[in-house]
Simulated scan of single mutants.
Amino acid sequence: MSNDNDTNSAEIDPDEAIADAWAAALEEQKETEQTGEAHSGMEGVRRMDPEDFSSAKTAPATDVNLNMVLDVPVTIAMEIGRTRIPIRNLLQLNQGSVVELDRLAGEPLDVLVNGTLIAHGEVVVVNEKFGIRLTDVISPSERVRKLR
Rank of each mutant, 00 (worst) to 15 (best):
G106R: 04
H39V: 10
A25W: 03
A17G: 01
E128D: 10
A77M: 10
T135C: 06
G96P: 01
I85F: 01
R84W: 10
G81L: 00
K30E: 06
T75H: 05
L93K: 07
D110N: 02
P50K: 07
G44P: 02
L134P: 04
D110P: 05
A38I: 06
D4V: 15
D71S: 10
N65Q: 10
V137N: 11
I18W: 08
V98D: 02
V111E: 01
E31L: 07
M1S: 11
E43T: 04
L101P: 05
S9G: 15
R82F: 14
G106Q: 11
N65K: 12
M78K: 03
G131P: 03
K57M: 09
D63Y: 09
P86H: 14
A119F: 04
A17M: 03
V113Q: 01
L91D: 00
D15H: 12
G96A: 00
V113N: 02
N94L: 02
L90R: 00
V113W: 06
M68S: 13
R103F: 00
N5P: 04
M68L: 14
P140Q: 01
A19Y: 14
P14L: 00
K129D: 10
A24Q: 07
N94W: 01
T58Q: 09
D6P: 11
T135Y: 09
M68N: 11
G36F: 02
E107Q: 12
S139K: 06
L112Q: 05
L117A: 06
P50A: 03
E79R: 13
L112A: 11
L26K: 05
F130A: 09
R145H: 03
A10E: 10
T75P: 06
P108F: 01
D13T: 08
N5K: 13
N94R: 11
L101E: 05
R148L: 02
E51A: 15
R148E: 00
R82C: 05
E128F: 13
T135E: 13
S2T: 13
H120L: 11
D6V: 10
R82N: 15
N8I: 08
A38W: 02
V74A: 11
S141Q: 09
Q29H: 13
G106I: 05
R143C: 00
N89I: 06
